[in-house]
């Protein structure tokens, strides 16, 4: 169980540093809260025309924001790693006998815990503003979000160690985020769009994940969206962890 022990050492170190400088956590939570407060009211008059079975703007919006939080927050997780790399911390950890996967997993544990806290805040706030949903479904939705967030955080860490530069990483993240945001139906359902756009969005794994979290919140667990969204979340998590571990293991990283 040295792996668990080593991951824990890395995790506790990361959490300690986060608590000492919680600005990033707050910035991460601010974004969905602003969407909720400033964008939610715009949806109110429109939401009855969505064919999502709900006429409650917040019931529609919160699941999407949850996935967005998971993706965006986690994608920026790697920036801290570049700072650590520059100060020689990564190299110092790599000369210890600790497992290279543990060096990554400890950091992912921090990202997932941070995401969980943010998700709970978001759901609680959404509930206060009028969101309604199935309790078990909300829990499942949060779990799916955490899996996706872990995948994105792993990819972000891998990207950070590959580019080793905030200046290179920021535009790459922007380029990746834009189509994801637009094609996954986070803010408006894709079903509003023309057929070609809907077909295009079918190729976007995050659309399935957003739909899965939405269905799950509504308590309908048996839909194809929930199945595909969960499959995609797991596939992405596997890919992200594999990529992340590979970069930590790679010589010269």
């Amino acid at each position: 169980m040295t792996f668990v022990r080593e991951s824990n050492v890395v995790f506790r170190r990361q959490i300690r540093m986060n608590l000492r400088n919680p600005a990033w956590v707050l910035i991460g939570i601010m974004q969905p809260v602003l969407y909720l407060v400033l964008f939610g009211p715009l949806l109110k008059p429109l939401v009855s025309s969505f064919d999502t079975g709900s006429d409650n703007a917040y019931t529609f919006l919160v699941p999407g924001l949850l996935v967005q939080l998971g993706m965006f927050g986690a994608f920026f997780a790697g920036f801290g790693l570049i700072g650590e790399w520059r100060e020689g911390v990564i190299e110092a950890e790599r000369v210890t006998p600790a497992s290279r996967s543990a060096l990554l997993v400890g950091r992912l544990m921090r990202d997932v815990i941070q995401l969980l806290v943010q998700a709970l805040i978001l759901v609680a706030l959404g509930y206060a503003m009028g969101m309604r949903g199935d309790a078990a479904g909300i829990a499942l939705g949060i779990v799916i979000t955490l899996v996706v967030g872990g995948a994105c955080a792993a990819a972000s860490n891998a990207l950070a160690l590959t580019t080793k530069s905030e200046d290179v990483m920021a535009p790459i993240i922007n380029i990746v985020m834009m189509p994801i945001l637009l094609l996954s139906g986070i803010l408006l359902p894709m079903t509003l769009g023309p057929e070609w756009l809907q077909s295009l969005s079918d190729f976007m794994p995050f659309k399935w994940i957003v739909d899965a979290v939405r269905d799950s919140f509504a308590g309908s667990f048996g839909t194809s969206s929930v199945l595909w969204g969960t499959v995609w979340a797991v596939v992405l998590a596997a890919l992200g962890t594999w990529w992340g571990t590979a970069t930590f293991r790679k010589e010269n990283a």
Binding site: R13, M17, N21, E87, G88, A92, V95
Partner: peptide, 12 residues
């Protein structure tokens, strides 16, 4: 191993 770039995080 004592590297030339350092080994500790500046804010810890």
């Amino acid at each position: 191993y004592v590297s030339q770039v350092g080994s500790t995080f500046s804010g810890a």
